[in-house]
């Protein structure tokens, strides 16, 4: 059922490690992430401070670790929301068709005509910062992909014989859709969700970098990278580097995972 490639397992391992770090960081970090003067300011990585310290002596390792649960959490929430809403919406319009289908498609086209990151920045700027707003906005942007994909899957499968056979057993149409057709269309949707998670992780980082997104003062990779910018010029590479590495690993792992899932789905179909 699952792909057996090395990429798949490596990506899965990285995601699992980030997940464990996220859970761990919610309870424990070597130093409190927002504590000042845990060591000398601008200290390069040492055993006491494996990722170094910043201008006010805060421990970068603790901050990077602590940001894991924010970034991983937002990414999973966004993808979960988009997957759930997109699958339900797409499945219904794909199954029933009609005016709801036509209207939905036009609506999604309008949404897709805006440049994604610009739209996210504008909306968050208008709504204000906050984790909830970030999750909602970043989830709405890739929604058209999910809707179209599940709509196409359902449309191609609704005339298959097992769907008709399911109706013959006395199931109502909505039951045929959600009990029989939707489970059969999840494979490409999950692959898409994984690739989308990669984009979400990068976008959340980007929003944090430009100061939009979560509340000021909370710890997040994108805003940490922005915070360390000034120091990079004077040799303090570690302040920006390690949170940037976090974004890189999260985004890359999801992308490779999604690639492996897509490959597996394509080879299964052919």
């Amino acid at each position: 059922m699952l792909p057996r490639s090395l990429t798949f397992f490596l990506a899965l391992a990285v995601i699992c490690m980030l997940g464990i770090a996220a859970i761990l960081s919610a309870f424990w970090t070597p130093h409190p992430p927002t504590a000042l003067e845990t060591g000398p300011p601008f200290a390069s990585p040492t055993w006491a401070h494996p990722f170094g310290t910043d201008a006010v002596g805060a421990d970068i390792f603790s901050r990077t670790l602590s940001a894991t649960h924010v970034d991983v959490g937002i990414t999973i929430a966004v993808v979960g929301l988009a997957l759930l809403v997109g699958t339900i919406w797409g499945s219904i319009i794909g199954f029933y068709g009609g005016w709801a289908d036509a209207v939905s498609l036009r609506l999604l086209q309008v949404l897709q005509s805006f440049p994604a990151l610009l739209l996210a920045m504008l909306v968050i700027f208008a709504l204000g910062n906050g984790i909830r707003n970030v999750i909602l906005v970043v989830a709405v942007i890739p929604l058209p992909d999910y809707v179209r994909l599940s709509r196409a899957e359902i449309r191609s499968k609704k005339t298959w014989q097992f769907a008709e056979a399911a109706r013959l057993t006395g199931r109502r149409p909505i039951g045929v859709l959600f009990r029989h057709l939707v489970p059969n269309s999840m494979r490409p949707l999950v692959a898409n969700a994984s690739i989308n998670a990669s984009w979400v992780a990068a976008t959340v980082g980007a929003l944090g970098f430009v100061g939009l997104g979560i509340e000021p003062g909370s710890v997040e990779w994108g805003s940490m990278v922005a915070g360390g910018q000034a120091a990079v010029g004077s040799g303090g590479w570690w302040i920006s580097f390690f949170p940037g590495l976090g974004i890189f690993f999260l985004s890359a792992a999801f992308h490779l995972l999604g690639d492996a899932l897509t490959d597996a789905d394509i080879s299964r179909r052919s």
Partner: peptide
């Protein structure tokens, strides 16, 4: 109840 010609397409592949 009805039974179809090709049973493998009449059964749901994921269950």
């Amino acid at each position: 109840c009805m039974v179809f010609q090709d049973a493998r397409t009449a059964l749901n592949p994921v269950f």
